[in-house]
Amino acid sequence: MPPSANSEQMTIHRRGRGLAGETIKGRAMSSILIIEQILNGLQFGVMLFLMAAGLTLIFGVMGLINLAHGSLYMVGAFAAAAVAGWTGSFLLALAASLAAAALFGALIELTVIRRLYARDHLDQVLATFALILIFSEATRWVFGSFPLFLNIPEALSGTLTLPGGIEYSRYRLTIILIGLAVAVGLFLLISKTRVGMRIRAGENDREMIGALGVDISILYTLVFALGAALAGLSGALVGAIQSVEVGMGEPVLILAFVVIVIGGIGSIKGALAGAILVGLTDTLGRTMLPWAFAAFMEPSAASSVGSSLASMLIYILMAGVLLFKPTGLFGSA
């Protein structure tokens, strides 16, 4: 085999490489970039919070490990994409995602989950894992294997110039605001309302509130549907900037579990703190590590090593938190 034209071109074009390496190494990280990345981390964090809040609430009140939470996230995204496709309205799509996820949440609570409260965690994991498979196959059966289209609404597309000359996506900013509003709403719901009081009572002593005459089964269905609706909302919000496809929920579910373990299982406050911490660690890690490694490595190797390490970072964070606070940041022993 004679050397092909390629290898000649290879030597000619090699000259670009050295120069490029120096530009990457030489560039300082600007403060604008860092602030933008902090916003990105915050946005990722509040999105995780919407997932983790439901998960931690369900675990806190019912003592149930719900692996099918990611499926409800997917249900929300698919419902939103379908309704946006029919009506063209993003608000209706969001409403549909809340309604569909809450409905399916209530449905599986009534039919399957209800039977699992008294069982041990292994049974719960097995049954809810089965639900993941059922949801995925059913979704594929209805919508097919190809991703659906769901776009950002016209009014929220494009960027906004923030003070300091930072250009930031309007839509991501909206996600941050919605997430923070949900956090405040949940806080008020749990600390100020009668339902919230019952939820807190349920967390403390399940049997006692039943004995006091509260209809515990309605409360459980309600909490489950609320958690499901939050997951659905998160799926719809994220679906507009990502790909709406079968199986989209599982990667997020893993992160949501990391979040509630860091925050302390059962604590909404912990879920918020954990979510923001994970969001910031992941986003800043992905940016900073390759850049830091580039100080003493060849750029392409630095990028590869840096990004590999960055993907481990949140798990290192989780291990670190558990080392010092085995019940998580806000967990009760």
């Binding site: 390629n6 071109q9 290879m10 000619i12 074009h13 670009g16 490489r17 120069l19 490029a20 390496g21 530009t23 990457i24 970039l33 933008e36 990345q37 990105n40 981390g41 946005q43 990722f44 996506s169 991501r172 994220v238 900037i241 990502q242 790909s243 989209m248 990667p251 986003t283 992905r286 940016t287 390759p290 750029p299 392409s300 990028s303 590869s304 990004s307 590999s308 960055a310 993907s311």
Partner: peptide, 28 residues
């Protein structure tokens, strides 16, 4: 890409397989 491309590189990034959020990369 680099083998047949004659210009310089403004940046070179590896992302996680299956990653769905690219805000951090787009900011860079």
């Amino acid at each position: 890409y680099k083998r047949m491309y004659s210009g310089d590189l403004a940046g070179e990034l590896y992302t996680k397989l299956g990653q769905t959020d690219y805000a951090a990369e787009i900011a860079q």
